[in-house]
Design a protein around this nucleic acid. Structure first.
Lengths: 259, 259
DNA sequence: CGTGCCAGGTGCCAT
DNA sequence: ATGGCACTTGGCACG
């Protein structure tokens, strides 16, 4: 069966269109800066930082108005091939197939889709002025600590956040109740040896920069791996269990809001 | 206009379906382990490691047979909300909206989509037995070096790859022309201070483990940051420019293949 | 299952 | 542009 719907410029929907018709409306959708999706029997090749080849089969393909491209198989969160925003999409119809090519403007990255058949083609203009808000990331932990330094420990005071050291930034820099300088490294998830080494790096950088021999280093996160904790102790650093959830509770209390 | 196509079990395509009809065929598609997509006017909430709320607007939503979920706005490579594979999808129809809920089996992560209207609903069974191959990753560099150790330097010999040290693995472990033990850390992209510290960690671990005082450390990658190079020199480590592309050329030569 | 680490990571923000 | 880093990172391989 073959069916066409809503081609008055509002949207386009083609059921099992012949290549030639698909080509026509695909161009129309792309030119009209619509979100375009289709299910196609296709081959895909990628060339850029690496190279890949995907042999023939049916996939869901999405092209967004900003030039981003997604090619999804029927499994997994990640697209098998893709392009981030800012690509130029071009199309070409030959005797036996339809070529869709996406070339990234800034770097040399190209994705080519050779299409032999389409199951469906849709082009839509998404009316979407919604706002997206996210809570519980490292940034929220930082905010909470600025407002409630005791989340780290009694008597802790924040001197500043995002303090620049040689390379990188210290999440929170402060002093403890004894007046000792203290570096706090925050992780919103499980912290591992990486995080410990990061903290160590900051503490050492700062010691050097300030010419101070004693600086406390505290890693604050909801969880730490066993190896991470071992390393932490070896390096004379400290661990403070602290979850984004707890920080959010404090932030809510302050704002009087339910997030 | 409203149109229905291919509901004989092969696929489903509904143009601008009423909520009730969409609900019926959505359930059918999910039950039949089909890939389901739809464009919907909806609100989205997420709760898990973090929390988020996306206010009302039109988005493209994809549900795969493996339980992965993607919610895309009309911009960007990344979905605004999502679930990786292995979620349980449930649906509920109320008077004024359709609820789609995805609950992750292993961890506590829930995405809820409140749908007020659908522009289109499609359910398809993707025939896809294609193979996906990728070239130019770190693994390919490793293979090339095993076959052509001189890619590192004249006289270099590989003892083994993926050698385990305290925590982690040394990419390539070998000896140079002077018989000195050498650790090689590979990066397929630009290497930064992180990579340098990683190499340092491996060299130190190995010195300790083997009771040797002199071990060379070579970082091989197509590019290194200025700060990375500084740190590398400070730590008496070395840099060898080497790109995945060059490695691939060698591999092709060996196999007599054009990849 | 936890731990470590790569990825065409992407995205954000700083210099 | 380069660089440093978080991310609901996801994904894999290995103890």
């Amino acid at each position: 069966m073959s069916k066409v719907g809503g081609m008055e410029g509002n949207h386009i929907l083609l059921d099992n269109p012949p290549l030639k018709e698909a080509y026509r409306f695909l161009r129309k959708g792309l030119a009209g800066k619509m979100l375009v999706f289709f299910i196609a029997d296709c081959e895909v090749s990628y060339r850029g930082r690496a190279r890949s080849y995907l042999s023939r089969g049916e996939r869901l393909i999405v092209i967004k108005p900003d030039g981003s491209l997604l090619i999804h198989r029927d499994k997994g969160y990640e697209p098998v091939n893709w392009q981030p925003p800012d690509t130029v999409i071009s199309t070409r119809l030959t005797d036996n197939h339809l070529l869709v090519k996406s070339v990234r403007k800034s770097v040399n990255e190209v994705v080519e889709i050779h299409i032999f058949d389409l199951k469906v083609l849709g082009c839509y203009r998404l009316k979407d002025i919604g706002t997206f808000t996210m809570y519980g990331r490292e940034e929220d932990m930082k905010k909470a600590i600025e407002m409630f330094p005791s989340l780290i420990e009694e008597g802790f005071k924040v001197l500043r956040t995002e303090r620049k050291v040689r390379p990188g930034f210290i999440d929170v820099f402060g002093v403890d109740s004894q007046g000792r300088l203290t570096v706090v490294e925050l992780k919103s998830g499980t912290s591992s040896m990486d995080a410990v080494l990061q903290l160590k790096k900051y503490v050492d950088s700062l010691k050097k920069e300030l010419g101070v021999t004693e600086i406390r280093g505290i890693l604050a996160s909801p969880r730490i791996t066993k190896r991470g904790l071992q390393l932490l102790k070896t390096l004379k650093l400290e661990y403070k269990p602290l979850s984004p959830a707890k920080c959010l509770k404090y932030l809510e209390r302050k704002k009087g809001l339910k997030l």
